[in-house]
Amino acid sequence: MDVIQIVVIGLIATVLIVVVKTQRPELALLLSVAAGIILFLLVLGKIGSIIDIVRDLADRAGIGSIYLGTILKIIGIAYIAEFGAQICRDAGEGAVATKIEFASKILIMVLAVPIVVAVLDALLKLVP
């Protein structure tokens, strides 16, 4: 049962962080990062199968693989930025967290440019 494994790892990490945080806050932060990485690695294999299904659906809908790739990249950027920003907030660095979020927003917008151009093209083609 993967879910039990994940929950147990999460609970252990939480207890350790709570215990350590009072004495060594910097170690608590490292523990938090390590727990996040372990949990991510546990579900990494399953993400591949979900992406395959999404790709299959996109092929059926006639959506180009370049658009789907862009969407997946954007989702990845959003997750990574979110994780980073949360860690920064947990460490008490709200300003850095805000900067991470800002940078990720810019990256998402840059990646969205081809899709915006495609929307414009498609709408202009509709006009006779």
Binding site: I63, T70, I115, V119, L123
Partner: peptide
């Protein structure tokens, strides 16, 4: 961005 992608596909 996902909404834009859906608009492209539908249009």
């Amino acid at each position: 961005v996902m909404g834009l992608l859906i608009i492209v596909a539908v249009v």
